[in-house]
Simulated assay, not measured.
Amino acid sequence: MANLATSIEDQLLKLQQRGMILDMEENKIKEVLLDIGYYRLGFYWHPFEIDESHNFQENTRFSNVLSLYYLDVDLRYLLIKYINRLELNFRTNLIYWTSIKYTENSIWYADSTIVSEDYLKDIKSHYNTNFKTKNLQIKHHHVKYPEDKFAPCWKTFEYYTFGSIVKVYENLLDQDLRKHISLKYNVKKPHIFQNFLNTLVFVRNSCAHSGVIYDLHINEGVSQLPDVKFNNSNSHNLDAAIRILLYLMESISSNRKDNLKKSIEDLFNSFSENEVVKKIIEDKLGYIY
């Protein structure tokens, strides 16, 4: 039965049989199920399930499930906005400081004396014919300079993902250069800065692909700094990643950092009167009111 499609009417009946209180107008619930989907909403009623048969705990309300869904959506849009701002700033710093050090080599990212051999083994997998033809400025460069194997870093990196940019930083051989860049974000140790970047790439990708993030688990854990305290010392939840994002944003713009902090607090506080959702925010996401 699990592999059979069910009608909206059957979905409503199944939810009721499992103990969910349908505390909204039936037409509105049907509209939600047709808009968001029964399967996707399942990620948001999962915290209310009490057994493998997917029965719900007492007083589980459809309205709370929907509130949790909208919390997730709003938080996802908010985080990706500020992570994208960090990505832009980091890309600029990586290009500038590395290019200033190697002023005669605009394609230093393809030089085995500057980046690791392991990185260079993979570079052709993404800087290939498709990359050269689908990205306008890269295409123009190779038309104008057909003998060039690669375009300058300031052109190329505009078309790299955040994860790809972070990978370049990870594979820089000059540790003093890595530290010089990390210090721009008030992080003394490059390996800790690397951990922060990897964490935010993971969060960013989860947000960009409409992942469920209220209970996001960061397997590696977020490295700690003396100035950053995690609630309940938990470095694996989304709140830890948010605190690191706030810390790094401070080095870019204190106003942006303050705006992000206030936006997050306003979002969470909008659920402060809903004890059910509030508890999930505290237990799953790691935020403490």
Rank of each mutant, 00 (worst) to 15 (best):
T6V: 12
D10K: 06
Q11R: 06
Q11S: 05
Q11T: 03
K14G: 08
Q16N: 12
D23C: 08
V32T: 10
Y44V: 00
W45N: 02
D51R: 04
F56G: 04
Q57Y: 03
S63R: 08
V65C: 01
Y69S: 01
L71D: 00
L78E: 05
L78K: 01
I80C: 11
I80M: 12
Y96M: 02
I100N: 07
E104Y: 13
E104Q: 14
Y109M: 08
K121A: 15
N128G: 06
N135C: 04
Q137Y: 15
I138T: 02
P152L: 06
G163R: 04
L183E: 09
K189C: 14
H191C: 09
I192S: 05
I192Q: 07
F196R: 05
V203C: 05
V203D: 02
A208L: 07
S210I: 13
V212M: 03
V212R: 09
H217A: 11
N219Q: 13
S223R: 12
Q224R: 15
V228G: 02
N234S: 06
N234Y: 03
L238V: 08
I242A: 07
I244S: 01
L245N: 04
S251R: 06
I252G: 06
S253C: 07
R256M: 15
K257N: 14
N259F: 12
N259G: 13
N259I: 14
E265A: 11
N274L: 02
N274G: 00
E275Q: 12
E275G: 00
K279P: 00
I280E: 03
I281C: 02
K284M: 05
